[in-house]
Design a protein around this nucleic acid. Structure first.
Lengths: 147, 147
DNA sequence: ACTTGACTTAGAGTCAACTCTAAAAATTAT
DNA sequence: ATAATTTTTAGAGTTGACTCTAAGTCAAGT
């Protein structure tokens, strides 16, 4: 199946502007153009966009994604570079998830605190709750600064 | 304990420039200044910076963080707004974590694929592996575009 | 007292990633 | 056939979050 840029925009949620921008940045080197100069996207291009989304969402800048695509185009001589890139991205991603889970605990604490505060009509009163104090200490206990 | 901007910079990893920028943006309304105009940070300010980091890391723009701080300063009349904000942030964060875990699966697939490709010296050969094909289908199986 | 380093301000500059504009050509709908 | 919509390009503009500069003040060490 072949798709116009508008269809791909609907499908991916990226604007047509963004898709052209990605192409200009070298992220979509496989997209064909017909005789009138109009882009014709294939299933394969959708696959690339899915991979781009994955790398972008996991914190890789567009330049890094372009590097990967450049390596892909160089062929099998860059296989280990690409493997290495994915392995690093995995390490980074696992770290990210771990951090977000810690942040989730902090936000849960705040929700508990504010639920109590709404109930009592006062943040100060809620902060006097022993259970919440213990939780706060556990979560926000920052190491002291040394001279 | 009282700290200068430099100490806080060391402690938080934010540059002094960034700390002043945050203050200018209204994110640190509690930071005091001494008679010479020099910022004096307290433990309480570190607590605020920790919360700012949490909200920033979970995708809230600085404007949203400022809104929260403005509400805080308005006092107990905004308790439910703040509770609501944290509840929304939690929903958003859980969604984020779920998405990152999906991305992790995709990256794991790519690692398996490239490990096989490196072993075989060819990406094409690796792509012919039945197990990997099944996995690819499971992970990248995109819905068709409808007319 | 002098030097070195940290602090102050207002404001300019940078960077990544879009986002939009304008004018023209192609495609689709009536 | 005509109108409306979509696509094309090059290039300019925007946004968010810093990041840096310059010119000056303050503080600590010798």
């Amino acid at each position: 199946m072949r798709y116009t840029i508008g269809k791909i925009s609907q499908k991916t949620g990226l604007t047509t502007h963004t898709l052209r921008y990605y192409e200009k940045e070298g992220l979509l080197p496989f997209v064909q153009k017909n005789s009138a100069g109009i882009r014709v996207f294939s299933e394969n291009d959708l696959g690339w966009l899915s991979m781009i989304e994955c790398l972008k969402a996991t914190g890789m800048p567009l330049k890094g994604i372009k590097q990967y695509i450049d390596w892909y185009q160089e062929g099998d001589t860059t296989l280990s570079k690409r493997l290495n890139m994915f392995q690093n991205q995995k390490i980074y991603l696992k770290q990210q998830i771990k951090e977000l889970q810690k942040h989730l605990e902090k936000i849960d604490y705040k929700i508990n605190l504010y639920q109590e505060a709404v109930k009592q009509g006062s943040l100060e009163k809620a902060e006097n709750n022993k259970e919440l104090q213990k939780e706060k200490h556990r979560l926000f206990n920052m190491k002291k600064i040394q001279k």
